Amino acid sequence: MRVAIVHDELMRKGGAEQVVLTMLKAFPNADLFTLAYNPEGTYPEYKNYKINTSKLQFLSRSVKWMQRLYFPLGVWAMKSLKVHGYDVVLISNTHSAKYVDIDNDALVFIYTYTPFRLAWEPTSYSQYVESRGVYRWVFDKVINYLREIDRKEAQKGDFYLGMTKETAQRIRDAYQVEDVTIIAPDVKTVNFKLSDKEKEYYLVVSRLEYYKKTDLAIEAFNELGLPLIVVGSGTKADELKRLAKPNIQFRSGLTSEELADLYANCKALIFPQYEDYGITPLEAIASGRPVIAYERGGVLETMIPYRGDASKATAVFFKEQTIESLKGAIELFQSLNFDPEFIKAHAEKFDEYVFIDKIKQFVTDKYRKSRQKSSPKPKLASEKRINS
């Protein structure tokens, strides 16, 4: 079984890029394709693989330039990237991975973290929210075009996979597909550890972007005066640093070991955003540390909320994305005693070996069944895919 794995882009360190590394462990002989690759921007493990990139690679040396050139050059580049000669194509995707040119007889699995956010949730971007007049008109035209392309290219899939019940429903709604199999992304628990040191600070680990709501955490801690460490980088970094008072520190460019130490020795991870899944809460609980999280999105399916017994919980939720609601959750947290061993044990239910077993079994079973069919009728382009 010849396997290709396709991912949107390998330019940064995020949860999706970790999932792809686990997919490569499930299918170690797979070839890897992507829009663009920056070895210094993403996880160093990718240096162990041969990575096939699109024509945008030559112009896309940073995330900023990749995003600037995405429309229309990135879309065109991915449509031009040929993924031929494979029995199975496993697509790891939010935006452009599914646009690639695939053989009509390949079996296609599309693992979607969430439908293309710019096309389907443009208000997640400050650039859209703040646009006016002719700029908003142009924005809407581009978004409508991207939505049309995105829905069309999603029809390439034979099988659809999602992270949670909520994201599975988004996939059904956006792409008009019926069956979506849920396989939760993994956390590599071996990379995290428990610590007996006294906990002195709270922690945020996030890309510093508009929809991540890091500003909410900073404003709450400005008022509380408690120590907070913010780990990450992004387009809002300078703005957030100006907002923060001296009790808040910023870190970036950390090694895996340095980040693991910060997780292990924090009081709790602050998770203020509405996230489709959320790998960082799982990394925190893999370190035995509880999470203070906004009560929406993926944390509803990965965390055990406090309901009167902190020893059997992994998180305290807050109901509204307001300073007062977050402060109330922090103040409640300070009165509770969590069990680090219980928290870490819960994280192990999401360990990478669980993901590897599930994705490998799902793909190989579907491939085996497809091979057992005698002389299958070829699908019409409208039923399977139109390569353009």
Rank of each mutant, 00 (worst) to 15 (best):
L24M: 14
Y353F: 11
R2H: 13
K47H: 08
P227F: 00
G278H: 03
G297I: 00
L90Y: 15
L59K: 14
A345I: 00
K82D: 10
L332W: 01
V187H: 03
R385P: 00
K319R: 15
V83C: 00
Y99G: 01
Y70C: 11
V231N: 07
S80F: 00
V89K: 02
S80Q: 15
S206W: 04
F317V: 04
F342T: 08
P39G: 07
F221A: 08
N387W: 01
K212I: 03
S374Q: 13
K384G: 06
G74Y: 08
K98L: 01
A97T: 10
M1S: 14
D238W: 06
Y113N: 05
D8L: 09
G308D: 09
I386F: 11
L243N: 05
R12E: 13
E178Q: 15
W76P: 00
Y37F: 14
I270N: 02
A30P: 10
S131A: 14
S60C: 12
S382N: 10
F71W: 13
V63R: 12
Q321F: 05
N144K: 14
E223V: 11
F250G: 06
F109E: 06
R289Y: 09
V205K: 05
V187K: 00
L90Q: 02
A260H: 06
E178N: 14
A174V: 01
F116S: 13
P227M: 08
F318C: 06
E200C: 06
K156T: 01
P39M: 10
L146C: 12
P72Q: 03
I323P: 01
A4M: 03
T112E: 13
V100F: 02
R242V: 11
A345N: 15
K82H: 12
F317W: 08
R68C: 01
G133L: 07
N247R: 10
H346E: 13
